[in-house]
Amino acid sequence: MTDTLTLLKTRRSVPPIAMTGPAPTPAELDAILSVAARVPDHGKLAPWRFIVIEGDARLKLGDAIAEIFVQDNPDAGPDRIEVERKRLALAPLVVAVVSTAAPHVKIPMWEQEMSAGAACMNFVIAANALGFATSWLTGWMAYDRRFLDRLGLAGHERLAGLIHVGRGKPPEDRVRPVLADIVTRWSA
């Protein structure tokens, strides 16, 4: 089995709360992002983009998350609000993958959206190949226009994922689907 197959068979998400530093160096992050951008992309549209959230920017965006959360949950206690505030500060690096899919004369939106999902997965695989732990998450804020506006997304853009990156030991593997339950063979 190749190293790639071993990685794909053993990769696990690590919860951001279990992550430590250091974050990828600028060169490592560039390598990860370069791999993330090498995905199927019908029409060469690059229907995705990346927003790097690091350092104090994680805390400032966390303040925005907490503010929005309190608007919708005015009775929330301080501990719960603090959980929301620290959402992006647990891992040393968070990268937002943004789907920029838009109507196109030849390329269906669905294909563009799947390309953004593939960019997320390539990012995760590349980061793991370099020895980092990752967790590809969304959460309520990925669907909240106020948060998306703060993050700088245009009206038609959607958040494909917030990928948390750091160091950490993966948890034990979870139960995976049984192939017989998910695989069929078509025949005429």
Rank of each mutant, 00 (worst) to 15 (best):
T2Q: 15
L7A: 02
R11S: 03
R12E: 11
V14G: 02
V14W: 07
P15R: 14
P15N: 14
P16D: 02
A18N: 12
T20P: 00
G21I: 11
G21T: 15
A23K: 07
T25S: 14
P26Y: 01
A27F: 01
E28W: 04
A31F: 05
I32T: 06
S34W: 08
V35C: 15
A37V: 02
A37Y: 00
A37Q: 05
R38C: 14
R38E: 13
V39D: 10
P40E: 12
H42T: 07
G43I: 05
G43L: 07
G43K: 06
L45E: 06
A46L: 12
P47Q: 07
P47W: 04
P47C: 04
P47I: 07
W48R: 00
R49V: 03
E54K: 13
E54L: 11
A57R: 13
A57G: 00
K60G: 08
D63L: 13
D63Y: 14
A66R: 11
E67P: 14
I68L: 04
F69Y: 13
F69W: 12
V70T: 12
V70K: 14
Q71V: 13
D72I: 06
N73R: 04
D75V: 12
A76W: 01
G77Q: 07
G77K: 13
D79L: 14
R80T: 15
V83T: 09
E84M: 09
E84I: 06
K86V: 09
R87F: 02
R87Q: 09
L88D: 08
V95Y: 01
V97Y: 09
V98H: 02
T100M: 03
A102H: 06
P103T: 04
H104P: 10
H104S: 08
H104I: 10
H104M: 06
V105L: 13
V105M: 09
I107Y: 10
I107D: 10
I107H: 09
M109L: 14
W110P: 01
Q112G: 03
M114Q: 12
M114L: 10
A118K: 12
C120I: 10
F123V: 00
F123H: 00
I125L: 10
I125M: 02
A126C: 04
A126Q: 02
A127E: 08
N128G: 11
G131R: 03
F132A: 01
A133M: 00
A133E: 03
S135G: 06
W136N: 05
L137F: 08
M141G: 08
A142M: 05
A142F: 04
Y143K: 01
D144L: 00
R145V: 15
R146C: 12
L148F: 07
L148Q: 12
L148R: 13
D149I: 07
D149E: 10
R150W: 14
L151I: 02
L151H: 04
G152S: 07
L153P: 03
G155T: 14
E157S: 03
R158F: 12
L162M: 07
I163M: 04
P170S: 01
E172K: 11
R174F: 14
R174E: 15
R174L: 15
P177F: 00
V178P: 03
V178F: 11
D181Y: 05
I182Y: 05
T184V: 10
R185D: 11
W186A: 13
W186G: 07
S187L: 15
S187R: 13
